[in-house]
Amino acid sequence: MVRDDVGPKVTFNHGYENESRFVEEDLNPNASSFYSLLSNAKEPLWSGCTKHTTLSAVSQLLNVKLKYNLSESCFVRLLEIIKNMLPSDEIYLLTFIE
């Protein structure tokens, strides 16, 4: 099915020596950013935090922003207030949203 979609120009490596090998390419900036965000799914919001990861906190905050139609300036101010309430070693949430 994949071959049908991408066409006959693509060579797939099945482990045979006579077939071309795949060459790993560097990730484009968007993909690198995406994989960086995915790594935050496992990273606690601050050391010792067991209830939230960086990704869970950001997703919940963005959900509130959308649900209540908060302006960007209101949302940024809310993040600044939350940041001041958290321990000093927390991840600054604003950097993941911008």
Rank of each mutant, 00 (worst) to 15 (best):
H52Y: 14
N28D: 14
E25P: 04
E80H: 08
E72A: 06
L70E: 03
Y68W: 05
L37N: 12
K51P: 01
L61P: 00
L93V: 09
Q60N: 10
R3F: 06
F34C: 06
P8T: 13
L38M: 15
S20I: 12
N18K: 14
L94R: 01
V2I: 12
L55I: 04
D26V: 14
M85Y: 07
L61N: 00
L38H: 07
N13P: 06
S33D: 08
T95S: 14
E80A: 11
L61I: 04
S88V: 10
G48P: 00
E43Y: 05
N13S: 12
F34Q: 07
V10Y: 09
N28A: 07
E80D: 12
I82Q: 00
G15P: 03
S73L: 09
P8K: 13
L94W: 03
I81C: 05
R3V: 08
Y68T: 11
N40E: 13
T95G: 05
G7K: 03
N63P: 01
L94G: 01
S32T: 13
Y35L: 15
F22G: 15
Y68E: 13
Y35W: 15
K51Y: 03
K65F: 01
L93G: 01
V2D: 12
P29A: 01
R77D: 07
V64L: 13
L37S: 13
E98W: 06
L94H: 02
V58M: 00
V2Q: 12
A31I: 11
V2A: 09
K67A: 12
S33L: 10
D4T: 07
F22A: 12
R77K: 15
D89T: 04
A31P: 04
H14E: 09
N84T: 04
E98M: 10
R21F: 08
V76M: 03
N30Q: 12
W46C: 00
N69F: 04
Y92D: 15
S39P: 02
F22W: 11
P87R: 14
T54K: 00
S39L: 10
L61G: 00
E80P: 02
V58H: 00
D89F: 05
L86I: 05
S20V: 13
E72Q: 14
G7H: 04
S39M: 09
P44A: 02
Y92K: 08
S56D: 02
E25L: 15
V10W: 10
E80Y: 04
V64C: 07
P87T: 06
S39R: 06
K65T: 04
S71F: 04
C74P: 02
V23F: 04
V10K: 13
L93T: 02
A57I: 01
G48A: 09
L66F: 05
S47G: 04
E98G: 15
T53P: 00
L66C: 08
N30I: 13
G15T: 09
S73E: 08
K51V: 01
W46V: 00
S33R: 09
V23P: 03
V2C: 07
A57M: 09
E19C: 12
E43R: 03
E43H: 05
F22Y: 10
K67N: 11
I97M: 03
N63H: 06
E25S: 13
